[in-house]
Every structure is written in C-alpha cells, then in structure tokens.
C-alpha cells in the first residue's frame, strides 16, 4: 500500500466508504440470488450489483486515481456505462429464453402468450 501513504485522510475515507458500500451491495445481491426460490425472483438479485454496486466501486476507483495521478481520471466510467447498457440485454435474453422454455414445457405460474392486460394479477409465483 505504498501508493496510499501520502494520501489525504479524507480521500482515503471517501474511497473506502464507496468501496465498502459497493462490495456489500454486491454481496447482498449474491446472497439474494442464492436465497430466492424461483428463477424469476432470482433475476432481480444481480441488478443490485450491476446498478449501485458497480457505480459505487467505479466512483471510488475514480476518486483514488484522480488524487493519485493529480489529474482527472474518468476512464472507469466506461465500465459503468458498459455494465448499465449490457445488463438489460443479457437479463432480457435470459428472461425470454426462460419464458419460452417454461411455456413450451407447460410449467405452472407462467403467463400465457395472450395474458390479460394490466390491472389484474396474472400469476402468483409462490
């Protein structure tokens, strides 16, 4: 940790706070991913890590490198943008694949192709 020796204390505290927040959000997301009972519930859990988990760790990395190299370092934001843009694509593809598989196998608890519109509850998954 030689690079951190001459870092101002408030920077270290700020970096640590964002880093810990992100890591714990990701951990809670993974725990939820492990604990939820059905796939459709599980698909919500990793979004904790992809939204504020990633954003928080990226912010902490940006603060640290901006202070370390004493020039603005913003390239970590590319990871944030990339994760934000790609996560919906993968989750949507997975969700559609799962819906398709469940429908073709006739599993209960899955809305049919012509499910009734909003206002009424279609299925109760539990």
């Amino acid at each position: 940790m030689s690079h951190a020796a001459d870092l101002p204390v408030w920077v270290a505290v700020l970096v640590s706070a964002f880093l810990l927040l992100g890591a714990f959000l990701t951990l809670v997301g993974s725990i939820g991913f492990y604990r939820f009972k059905s796939f459709y519930e599980r698909i919500h859990a990793p979004t904790l890590g992809t939204s504020w988990g990633t954003a928080s760790i990226v912010i902490s990395s940006m603060i640290l490198f901006t202070v370390l190299q004493s020039r603005p370092v913003f390239h970590e934001i590319l990871i944030g943008i990339f994760v934000t843009v790609t996560t919906p694509v993968t989750l949507m593809l997975l969700g559609r694949a799962t819906l398709y598989r469940d429908r073709s196998e006739g599993n209960p608890g899955v809305p049919p192709m012509d499910a009734p519109l909003s206002g009424r509850r279609d299925t109760e998954r539990r």
Binding site: V9, V11, A12, S16, A23, T26, L27
Partner: peptide
C-alpha cells in the same frame, strides 16, 4: 494513517466480493 484505512477497507471489500462469488 490513510494507508491503514485503505488497506483495511480494501481487504474487507475483497472478502465481501469473494463471499459473493
């Protein structure tokens, strides 16, 4: 001082991430 703060928080964060994995 700041090196100690950062070392501890990074270690805890990496432990949390490893647990998540």
């Amino acid at each position: 001082m700041s090196a100690t703060i950062l070392l501890w928080s990074v270690t805890i964060a990496q432990g949390a991430l490893a647990l998540a994995m």
